[in-house]
């Protein structure tokens, strides 16, 4: 099965998606793998200043 999903949840997108399309003003502004697209620079451009995705590593106890 092929899945195309729309989401504001960037953590979930980073977790499950193989590809990301960034839609801006009715056009795909950029597309690629999550590691390439979900960067501070791209997200700032698409969502506005001060946006970034932080990769959380759970602590081991």
């Amino acid at each position: 099965m092929t899945v195309l999903l729309v989401s504001h949840d960037l953590s979930m997108v980073n977790r499950v998606a193989r590809h990301v399309w960034c839609l801006q003003d009715g056009k795909i502004e950029c597309q690629g793998e999550p590691q390439v697209i979900l960067t501070g620079e791209t997200l700032s451009r698409v969502f506005g200043l001060g946006t970034g995705l932080f990769h959380h590593q759970p602590h081991s106890h």
Partner: peptide, 29 residues
């Protein structure tokens, strides 16, 4: 709402569309 979208959807994969409200995400679907 959409102004010249070009893309290919890879078979068997999960692709996510992101963007601000009003960017045209739901309209694309």
């Amino acid at each position: 709402i959409l102004s010249g979208v070009n893309a290919e959807l890879e078979r068997g994969s999960i692709t996510a569309v992101i963007g601000l409200n009003g960017a045209g995400k739901t309209t694309l679907l």
